[in-house]
């Protein structure tokens, strides 16, 4: 790494060089730091500030000066934590997340392994068509599936009708979780598959050749070699999926308008939206957001801790 330039620099003495270098990196970092502070640190700080406040109305609340913002300490947090509906929304998300995580990541893994195997044809086409739904925005996907779930226009209902099954409500409370999970699986499998597939392609092919010479079948190679190699990527996709699941909002909110079975607080984030923009209580919304962020942190770091030893044993 040694070039003539640094050596010549030495002549100017250590002090001058350190002084110049001291300012320059910060100058380069400045845009990032400013943006970080402005768009990340400041809003989070403002959210935390709002979560400790509330408006207080006096009398009829009409006319000038009848509404004040006051400091209420942790009252908003207490309200959120003692709200039974808030915890029910977590239970719903847990059920939804279990379906999404197992089905979506399972499919992603299977597809990645199939596409990576020697025998498959049309790998390029398969890859693109599995990935394509990921490019569809969540609202569009939900609208489209919404049309498919409603009986009068839907080919799903026509197919069910053809085999003699009628009067199925795909948005019935009993199967709502699966109908919603289906949208997430449809949209998310491609992305996760691509992450896993990329990791597989980065693995030296010599391993597989050696295994084949030792007489391993494709299935054995997949289970004994590829999956262990993929473990760090699987952990990564799982964490991304856990976080996305806890923030699920678009699908249930979009489907809410066409169904009687999704409440305005079906998921935790929907409660935040309702508080902030429907009932105009920005303060409760801020407190609930902080709680959701805390739970997301605990769950994702908890998961990471639990699997770190196994998944990243090689790297430590």
């Amino acid at each position: 790494m040694s070039t003539p330039a640094p050596r010549r620099d030495d002549r100017y003495g250590k002090g001058a060089r350190a002084g110049r270098a001291g300012a320059v990196p910060y100058l380069f970092l400045a845009p990032a730091i400013v943006l970080f502070l402005l768009f990340f640190a400041l809003p989070i700080g403002y959210t935390a500030y709002l979560s400790l406040r509330r408006t207080r109305v006096s009398g009829l609340g009409l006319g000038k000066g009848s509404r004040h913002e006051i400091f209420v300490g942790l009252d908003n947090y207490k309200d959120a934590i003692t709200d039974a509906e808030f915890w029910r929304s977590w239970v719903r998300v847990l059920g939804y997340g279990t379906v999404v995580l197992t089905v979506m990541l399972g499919l992603a893994l299977v597809f990645a392994l199939i596409l990576d195997s020697e025998a498959v044809r049309l790998a390029r086409f398969g890859r693109i068509s599995i990935f394509l739904p990921y490019a569809v925005p969540g609202v569009i996907a939900s609208l489209m599936w919404g049309f498919l779930y409603l009986p009068s226009l839907s080919p799903i209902h026509q197919a069910l009708h053809a085999v003699g099954v009628d009067d199925v409500n795909l948005l019935d409370p009993s199967i709502l979780t699966f109908s919603l999970a289906n949208i997430a699986v449809w949209g998310g499998t491609g992305f996760n598959m691509l992450v896993l597939y990329t990791a597989l392609r980065a693995t030296p092919r010599d391993y597989y050749e050696a295994a084949r010479i030792d007489g391993a079948s494709e299935l054995q190679i997949a289970v004994r070699i590829k999956i262990p190699i993929l473990l760090p990527s699987i952990v990564l996709t799982t964490i991304f999926s856990i976080i996305a699941t806890m923030q699920v909002f678009t699908e249930p909110t979009t489907l809410r308008s066409i169904s009687n079975t999704i409440s305005s607080t079906w998921t935790p984030l929907m409660k935040v939206y309702r508080d902030a923009f429907v009932t105009g209580d920005l303060y409760s919304a801020a407190a609930t957001s902080v709680i959701i962020a805390a739970i997301s942190l605990i769950v994702s770091f908890g998961f990471l801790r639990a699997v770190r030893k196994r998944a990243f044993a090689d790297e430590e």
């Binding site: 109305v57 009829l60 609340g61 009409l62 409370p173 009687n260 079975t261 999704i262 409440s263 305005s264 607080t265 309702r274 429907v278 009932t279 105009g280």
Partner: peptide, 20 residues
């Protein structure tokens, strides 16, 4: 009243539930 939003939102949630 001054919180029609709250009442209307509660109407939707409660009557959705009652219908289901």
């Amino acid at each position: 009243g001054p919180d029609v939003n709250v009442a209307y939102n509660a109407y939707k949630d409660n009557f959705d539930k009652a219908i289901a």
